[in-house]
């Protein structure tokens, strides 16, 4: 059944990287431009979905040995814990703050705690979407 997938597989190998890069870009640019945790996470997971479509579940799982349930759980934990973090500084739950630094290579760069929170969101989305996809595919 797999003979006809050559074109799909070849294209996927390239496309997946483009999508992954785009996903990371979307995730990082979310602060000032369109993008953010949800979109980034969804785009990343769509790259994985493409991989699963082009190749079979077993070989992808062998190549990327990740437990996506754990990824999702870690994401949720990060999202909640960064919220807790602000409590340590005496502000309300989930308060975010940001600051700018001058770094040698990147120049003036902004850091925001919201990025940490968003990374939790993104990981959560990636984990959940792929968990759903993979469990259905494996249920044969």
């Amino acid at each position: 059944m797999r003979e006809n997938d050559i074109i799909l597989q070849t294209v996927s190998k390239v496309a997946v990287f483009i999508i992954l890069t785009f996903g990371v870009y979307l995730f990082l640019s979310g602060h000032h431009n369109p993008g953010g945790g949800f979109i980034g996470g969804l785009t990343l997971s769509s790259a994985f979905v493409l991989l699963y479509i082009a190749f079979d579940v077993e070989s992808v799982n062998a190549g990327i040995p990740l437990n996506y349930k754990m990824v999702a759980a870690v994401g949720v934990l990060i999202a909640i814990c960064t919220g807790m973090g602000s409590l340590l500084f005496g502000s309300a739950f989930l308060s975010q703050s940001s600051a700018y630094f001058n770094l040698p290579v990147f120049g003036k760069t902004g850091f925001a705690t919201v990025t940490l929170f968003e990374s939790g969101v993104a990981l959560g989305v990636v984990g959940v979407v792929i968990t759903i996809m993979v469990s259905i595919s494996e249920d044969v």
């Binding site: 602060h31 000032h32 369109p34 953010g36 759980a73 989930l94 975010q96 929170f117 969101v121 989305v125």
Partner: peptide
């Protein structure tokens, strides 16, 4: 909130509680 993207600032800062719980809901669904 230090963000130019208003939508994203709402999600990540103003209404971060909603977003956090949404991730939790998503996780529960998963």
């Amino acid at each position: 909130a230090g963000g130019r993207n208003i939508v994203n600032s709402i999600l990540g800062d103003f209404r971060a509680f909603d977003t956090m719980l949404e991730v939790v809901v998503l996780f529960i669904a998963g």
